[in-house]
Design a protein around this nucleic acid. Structure first.
Lengths: 135, 135
DNA sequence: ATGGAGGTTCCAGTAACGGGAAGGTCAAGG
DNA sequence: CCTTGACCTTCCCGTTACTGGAACCTCCAT
């Protein structure tokens, strides 16, 4: 298989596949013409990576997960630990975004959004304490 | 004020403040010795940027917001539009993270996490369809 | 005079690719 | 046989918002 077909089947852009080879995630063979010659195993690996990436794992996590996957003597505890760690990181991000969202949403609702220049959003960013001290 | 004091008062690292000058967000004067000489206005601007960044606005958004803030003829609708757009982006990110979280959390709960190699997480990443087809 | 805490510039690296140039290869068509 | 177009190759730069570090300068206190 050439890279184009692998790209289609894995859903990953050809550029990304080449990048994954660059950083040593995959090592496809080469044809005599210099083209990458992918086998089923490579495709399978790429699909694996694609799914891990879709779950938000970093490339380094993917490297680790691939190694565990290919290691018959792995312990599922290692995988679970990695996944739980990632879960915590996701929760942290969600919490941070929700905090931002709450503040921003409040400000948006306070802003008339008309043709006048008065704007509680800018007031808040400027630290004017006008609405924060309105109690 | 030298950069150290401004860093403390604004809560931004000195490196970041220099970077903000590099990209033209601020333009502090210079003392004869070559040191940056910050005035109150600069500090105020930096605090403004810091707060906008804390709400997740990009640097380019900050540039726009600063310009609006300094423009007496702005219309609050412009600010509100920018904020609402950002709010949508935040919501998108939260939705994506929650989707990841749901899948990952399910997989983690399915995994024994012991010393055996069998691992539903890896099975899922490998696309084995074992648990997805268990209905 | 000297030591240390500040300041300065510039360069490189981060994560994970994407865009685009310059050029080789292959299959089909005239 | 030649060309055209699709596909492949490598290589280098750009992205976001900084961070770390080197090499060097300046100020203040002892």
């Amino acid at each position: 298989m050439n890279i184009g077909e692998v790209a289609q089947q894995s859903g990953l852009p050809a550029k990304t596949i080449r990048y994954y080879e660059d950083i040593g995630l995959i090592s496809p063979q080469r044809s005599e013409n210099g083209y990458r010659a992918f086998r089923e195993r490579d495709l399978h690996k790429l699909a694996f990576i694609g799914r891990a990436r879709a779950l938000g794992f970093t490339i380094e996590d993917c490297r680790t997960l691939l190694a565990l996957y290919q290691n018959d003597h792995r312990e599922s505890g290692q995988v679970k630990a990695l996944a739980e760690q990632h879960l915590v990181a996701i929760d942290d991000k969600i919490a941070q975004l929700r905090s931002m969202r709450a503040t921003l949403s409040h400000l948006v609702h306070c802003c008339a959004g008309d043709h006048r220049p008065d704007c509680p959003i800018l007031d808040d960013l400027a630290g004017s304490d006008l609405h924060r001290g309105d109690a």
